[in-house]
C-alpha cells in the first residue's frame, strides 16, 4: 500500500545495501582463517599462469622441508590429479580439487578440502590455485599470503598486462631463470614492471630445476613460519556441517 496517500498502488523504494558482492565467499574465507589460526597453520595461496612453474617450485619446496615440519598442499585444476600426484611423489600429502570448468578456487572449495585427512596435520599449507592470471585474484581463500609465480618465458611485460593479479601478490617468484640464456628477457625489466603494478614488491628469482635462488624463498617461508609460532594442535569444537 502506498504510504503517502493510501491509494493502494504499488510504489518504488530504494534500499541501501553497500555490501561486497563476494560477502559469502569472504565469510567462508574468514572461517578458513580461523581454522588456520587455531592450528598455527601458515597458508599460502600460490597463483600464476598455467605452466608458470607452480608445481615445480612446490616440489622443490616439499623436498627441502620434508621431515622438518609438516607440509601439505591442496591443488586446483579443471581436471586430473596430476599435480597432487607429483607433490605426493615429492614427499608431502596433497589433495586435488578438480573444479570442472571453474576458473578459480573459492573459499568453500578450500574449506571442504581442509577437512580431508591428508592435509589435516599440515603446519605449512600450500593452496596451488587453478593456473590463471585473472580469476583467482578475485577470491580470498583465507590465506596468510598470496604468492604469484611468473616464468621468465612469459615475457617482461606480463605484470603490466595483468595488474590485478600482481597487485594482489605479497611475493612474486620469477621462475625458470635457468632459461634466461635462451631468451631476450631481462630480469631487471620484469622487476621494473612489477614495481609499476604493486607497491614495493618482494621478488625472488628462482629456478626449481637448478635450485638457484630457492634459498631466499625457503628462508622467507621459515621466517614467516617462525613469526606465527602458533598455538599447538587441537582444533576448536566445530559443529557446522561439511558438504
Amino acid at each position: 500500500m502506498c504510504e503517502t496517500c493510501g491509494c493502494g498502488d504499488p510504489h518504488k523504494v530504494s534500499v541501501e545495501i553497500q555490501e561486497r558482492i563476494l560477502s559469502v565467499n569472504d565469510r567462508e574465507a574468514a572461517h578458513n582463517r580461523e581454522h588456520f589460526a587455531a592450528r598455527g597453520v601458515l597458508a599460502i595461496n600460490l597463483m600464476g599462469s598455467p605452466g608458470s612453474g607452480k608445481t615445480a617450485v612446490l616440489e622443490a619446496t616439499a623436498r627441502a622441508f620434508a621431515g622438518r615440519f609438516p607440509v601439505a598442499a591442496i591443488t586446483g585444476d579443471l581436471e586430473t590429479e596430476r599435480d597432487a600426484e607429483r607433490l605426493r611423489s615429492a614427499g608431502i600429502p596433497a589433495r586435488a580439487i578438480t573444479t570442472g570448468s571453474a576458473c578459480h578456487l573459492d573459499a568453500a572449495m578450500v574449506h571442504h578440502a581442509l577437512h580431508h585427512d591428508s592435509v589435516q596435520d599440515a603446519r605449512l599449507l600450500f593452496i596451488e590455485n587453478v593456473g590463471n592470471l585473472v580469476c583467482p585474484a578475485v577470491y580470498d581463500l583465507g590465506q596468510a599470503f598470496n604468492v604469484v609465480a611468473l616464468a621468465v618465458t612469459e615475457g617482461e611485460d606480463k605484470p603490466l598486462k595483468y595488474p590485478v593479479m600482481f597487485r594482489k601478490a605479497d611475493l612474486v617468484l620469477v621462475t625458470k631463470t635457468d632459461l634466461l640464456p635462451y631468451l631476450d628477457v631481462r630480469l631487471g625489466a620484469i622487476d621494473e614492471a612489477l614495481e609499476r603494478v604493486t607497491p614495493a614488491p618482494l621478488v625472488f628469482h628462482v629456478s626449481a630445476r637448478s635450485g638457484d635462488g630457492l634459498d631466499g624463498w625457503f628462508a622467507w617461508l621459515e621466517s614467516q613460519f617462525a613469526a606465527r609460532s602458533g598455538p599447538v594442535p587441537g582444533h576448536p569444537a566445530h559443529n557446522h556441517s561439511h558438504i
Binding site: M1, P10, H11, K12, V13, S14, V15, E16, I17, Q18, E19, R20, I21, L22, V138, R167, P199
Partner: peptide
C-alpha cells in the same frame, strides 16, 4: 597505498513494493 579501485560492491536496489 590503493585509495580506490578495488570495489566489487552492491550499492542500492530499487524495488517495487505493495
Amino acid at each position: 597505498a590503493l585509495a580506490a579501485g578495488d570495489e566489487i560492491v552492491l550499492g542500492q536496489i530499487e524495488l517495487e513494493v505493495p
